[in-house]
Design a protein around this nucleic acid. Structure first.
Lengths: 247, 247
DNA sequence: CGCGCGCTTGACCAGACTCAACTGTTGTGG
DNA sequence: CCACAACAGTTGAGTCTGGTCAAGCGCGCG
C-alpha cells in the first residue's frame, strides 16, 4: 500500500467547529510530511529531546510512562487522527514513550510550525487548545475509573471507549472491530496484571458480553456493557460559537 | 480580611515565559472580578451549564467527578493561581464539581472573554494551551501512580506533590505546611478508602517520614519521602523560545 | 455539657497479585 | 519442510494488599 493511500482524519480537529476548506487544506499540508514505522518500533522515547509533535495518520500507537521502579503504564492508545506527544511541549525532555502497536504512518510537526499557527491562525490555535482539553478530560475520566471501579468495570469502560472512538473512524462493523492489543498491553493500559486481564476478559466472555476470534473483538451486548461501564464517553460540544472567526 | 488583600499569583502563567508588564496587568484585570465563598460551598456542580472558567485567588478547591455508581473521586486539589474548570470548556455541561475546601476567593472569566484572548493576544493564548498541557501531564502522572503504585507510595507522591506546589506559593516553612484536607478527602483524592488512608498515614508516621499536629503536616525526611514516591514532579520548561512574541 | 465530625482501631473478607506450569500459535532458520 | 524458539493465552494454588463493617475515642464548637 502506498503512503498516499492514507488520509489524515480530521474528526479531532473538526469536533468543535466546521473547518473551512482553507483550514482543511492547511491541516492536510501539516500532515503531508509522512513517515512509516513497523509494528513494535519506538517512535520517541521518554527523555528524548522534544522538537515537535506528531499527527497519527494510520495505525495504533501507545503512549507509555515508566516509573522509577520500572513499572510501566500505558497512558492511552492513540488511533488515527490523534495528536501525539503534545503534553511534552511543556518539557524539554519527553514525558512519554510512543510505541507503534501496528504498522503506523504519522507526520511530524515542528514546534516552530506550531508557533506560526498561534500567531497566524487563532482559530486553529483555539481548536488545538480545545483538543488538549478534550484529551485531558479523557485522562481524568480514566483516573476516576481506575480509582473507583473494579477490574470488570475498568475493562468494560476500556472496550466501550475503543468502540466509540473506532466508530468515528468507520472501523466498527456490527459491533466488531480489530483489536491489535495483547493482553499484556491491555494490562499496562488498565493498570492490572496480564493474568488478571485474562481472567476478567474470560468473565466478560462467560457473561455473554463479548466474544473474541483471533484479533477480532465482538461486542455481543452493547447495552449490558454500557451499563457495566462506570461512565460514558463525553459528548463534546459541537460548534462552539465563541471561537475566533475564520481568517 | 478584605478581598483586596488577596493577589492572584501569576506563577502558573509565568512558568513558561517572562510576562510583560502589560500582560501582567491584563491578567490582573481578568482576576479583578472577585467572589468569595465559605468552606464547604459548591462553586459549580457537574451538569451545570458551562459559561466560563475560574481563576483561583485564595484557598483550596477540589475538582471531583461522580460515577454512575455514586462513587466519587477528586481529580485534583487546586491551589491559588490555578485555573479551574477549564476542561469543561469543550462540553456544554460541566464535567466536574468544584467545591471549596477552605474559604476561597476566585474570579470568573466568561467564554467570550477567553475568545478575545485568542484573537488578540496569541502569546497569552499559547500560554493557556501550555498550562492546559501541564495540567494534563499532572493528571497522566496521577494515573500512572494510581495504576502502578501501592497505597504508601501513592500517599508519598501526593504529599510530595503538595509540598512542591505549596513551596511555589511560599506556604511551606521548614517542610511544614497547613493541610486542610480530612482523611476522607485524601481518600477521595487518592482512590483509597478513608480507613486505609488512616492506616497508611499511620505507617508513614511510624516510619518517621512525617509528623502531624492538628492540621499541620511536617515532613521529617524529605529525601526518604522522595525515594518512596514513585515519580517526581515534572520540571516544566522555562522560557519556550518559540512562543509568539509579545504584542 | 453534649453533639457531631473526624480520627483510630480491630476483625474479617475479597479482589487482585504472584508464581508457576502448560497449551497453542507463529514464524524462522537449518 | 520440519524442529524449535518465542510469544500469547490459559489455568491453578496460594498470598497479600486494601476494602468492609463496626465500634470507640477525642476534640472543638455551639
Amino acid at each position: 500500500m502506498k503512503a498516499s493511500d492514507h488520509v489524515y482524519p480530521l474528526h479531532r480537529w473538526g469536533a468543535f467547529a466546521q473547518l473551512t476548506a482553507d483550514e482543511q487544506s492547511f491541516i492536510a499540508e501539516l500532515a503531508s510530511n509522512e513517515t512509516t514505522r513497523r509494528a513494535g518500533a519506538t517512535i520517541r522515547s521518554e527523555e528524548d529531546a522534544v522538537t515537535g509533535i506528531y499527527l497519527l495518520i494510520e495505525g495504533w500507537v501507545t503512549s507509555s510512562i515508566t516509573l522509577r521502579s520500572g513499572a510501566r503504564l500505558i497512558q492511552k492508545v492513540h488511533l488515527p487522527g490523534d495528536v501525539l506527544g503534545a503534553t511534552s511541549m511543556v518539557l524539554s525532555k519527553a514525558a512519554d514513550t510512543l510505541t507503534a502497536v501496528t504498522e503506523v504512518t504519522f507526520a511530524f510537526v515542528s514546534l516552530e510550525r506550531l508557533r506560526s499557527i498561534f500567531s497566524e491562525r487563532p482559530r486553529l490555535a483555539a481548536l488545538i487548545t480545545f483538543a488538549a482539553q478534550a484529551e485531558r478530560l479523557a485522562v481524568v475520566d480514566a483516573l476516576v475509573v481506575k480509582g473507583r471501579a473494579n477490574a470488570k468495570e475498568q475493562l468494560a469502560y476500556l472496550i466501550f471507549d475503543l468502540h466509540t472512538r473506532l466508530t468515528f473512524l468507520g472501523a466498527v462493523k456490527d459491533d466488531r472491530f480489530d483489536l491489535p492489543l495483547t493482553q499484556e498491553l491491555i494490562a499496562d493500559l488498565s493498570g492490572l496484571t496480564a493474568v488478571h486481564v485474562n481472567r476478567t476478559l474470560g468473565a466478560l466472555r462467560a457473561d455473554g458480553l463479548i466474544e473474541q476470534k483471533g484479533r477480532e473483538l465482538h461486542i455481543l451486548d452493547v447495552d449490558a456493557l454500557r451499563r457495566l461501564s462506570p461512565m460514558s464517553p463525553r459528548q463534546l460540544k459541537y460548534e462552539a460559537t465563541w471561537l475566533p472567526s475564520p481568517l
